[in-house]
Computed example of a mutant assay.
Amino acid sequence: MADPDLAPTPNSDPSPDLQVNEVPEIPTEVLADIAGDKPASTEEEQTTWPLISFKHVSMWFGERKVLDNVSFYVNRGETLCILGRSGVGKSVSLRILLGFLKPQVGSIRVDGQEINQYTEEEMQAIRRRITMVFQNGALFDSLTVRENVAFPLRERGGQEEDQVQQVVDRLLGLVGADDVPDALPASLSAGRRRAVAIARALASQPEVVLYDEPTTMVDPIIARRLGGLIQRLKQQLGFTSIVVTHDMRFAERLADTVLFLDEGRAAFFGPLKDFMASPEPHIQQFLTLDAYVLPSA
């Protein structure tokens, strides 16, 4: 098992199946919509500490230990994929990072600052920097697609209404949902809701996006588009992402580093290529089961 206190070598050999051109290059004006006027990180910030780190985090729900001494970190501009079977603490880790859950033990740092004891008001500042795309989309049911994406723009302020609508149109075009601007979320497929949720997340101009099972109940075409979009955001904006998934093929396309959770423990943390080559039986079993295809009738 890789030592989380030692920097894993970034994965410089992406999967040969990667087809980033499935998503066209993001236009300059859309990049500006997403990036806003945030200053680029300095060389010192890029090398001094990780953007996000968990150290020895443990959490219980009653008598059930959901996370057991878990450590990992994410550097700026990297994509971490958190893998594992259902119920091993993958999504819990994201909710801890956003302060929706508080672990009983451990340290959580963002940009070198300990946040585990932050108040709700202090966590609001963290959530402006780190946003999450929930598995169910978490859209406002009573608002149209257009109004959902416009919500964080209006909340932030500083733009006229016609500017807000222009940004919304560009973001909906980016995620392939520009044909349903007036639809209500309940009328959309799971994949479309997920795409709209990503557009809304990007409208908040975050530094980090957390994705909770982005390909669950999504058809392969939309899944590939979402994967390509995450890659484009990384390539063109240096976006940092954490992707919770059980889909190894999706992870192969995206991951620089992998955290593999097994019964709440960090059974592996390191580069994707090392995870794929690991001889550990529980990892090989996970990879084998993921690759298994049911025979046709």
Rank of each mutant, 00 (worst) to 15 (best):
V105L: 04
E44K: 01
S241A: 14
T48Q: 09
V105N: 06
L229P: 13
R192S: 10
T288L: 14
E29T: 11
R265M: 08
L143T: 00
L171E: 09
L233N: 14
A2T: 08
K102F: 11
V180N: 13
F72I: 01
R192M: 15
E147K: 02
S93D: 10
N21I: 14
V258M: 12
R85S: 12
R225Y: 14
G112M: 10
G157I: 12
Y118M: 07
A197E: 12
D33V: 03
H56V: 03
G173C: 04
T79N: 14
Q117K: 06
E44R: 00
N116F: 05
Q236G: 05
H246T: 02
G77N: 13
D178Y: 00
V92Q: 06
R146W: 12
F61L: 14
T119H: 08
Q46A: 13
Y118E: 02
V133P: 00
V149M: 00
A150W: 00
L67G: 01
A255W: 03
P50K: 01
I34A: 11
A138H: 00
R156C: 05
G176P: 03
Q166Y: 09
E29C: 10
R224D: 14
R253T: 13
G228S: 14
V167L: 09
Y118L: 07
A223V: 06
D3Q: 08
D162F: 02
T215G: 13
P8T: 06
M132A: 09
L188D: 10
Q285E: 02
P214D: 13
D111R: 10
V180M: 15
S86W: 01
V23M: 09
L101I: 09
P10F: 00
N136M: 07
A203P: 03
Q285N: 02
F54V: 02
F100K: 05
D33P: 01
S204T: 03
R192Q: 15
S41E: 11
E45R: 04
L101Q: 11
T240G: 12
L143H: 05
A199M: 04
K55V: 01
S189I: 05
Q117N: 07
I222V: 07
A197V: 13
E45G: 00
D290F: 07
G62A: 12
Q104S: 11
G238T: 04
R85D: 15
L143M: 05
Y73E: 00
G89Y: 08
L31C: 07
A183I: 07
E45W: 03
N21H: 15
H282V: 06
R76D: 12
L226P: 07
A125G: 07
K102V: 12
E160T: 11
F151S: 00
F151I: 00
T131N: 13
P10L: 01
L153P: 03
Q231H: 08
E43T: 05
Q19E: 15
L261F: 12
F100G: 05
M217T: 14
E207Y: 08
V196Q: 04
D212M: 11
D33N: 07
E213N: 14
D262L: 00
G264I: 04
L139W: 03
D247P: 12
G270F: 05
V196H: 02
D219S: 09
E147R: 00
E280K: 08
V244D: 06
G270T: 06
S91C: 10
E263H: 08
A223D: 04
L51I: 04
Q166V: 08
L174A: 03
L202V: 12
A251F: 01
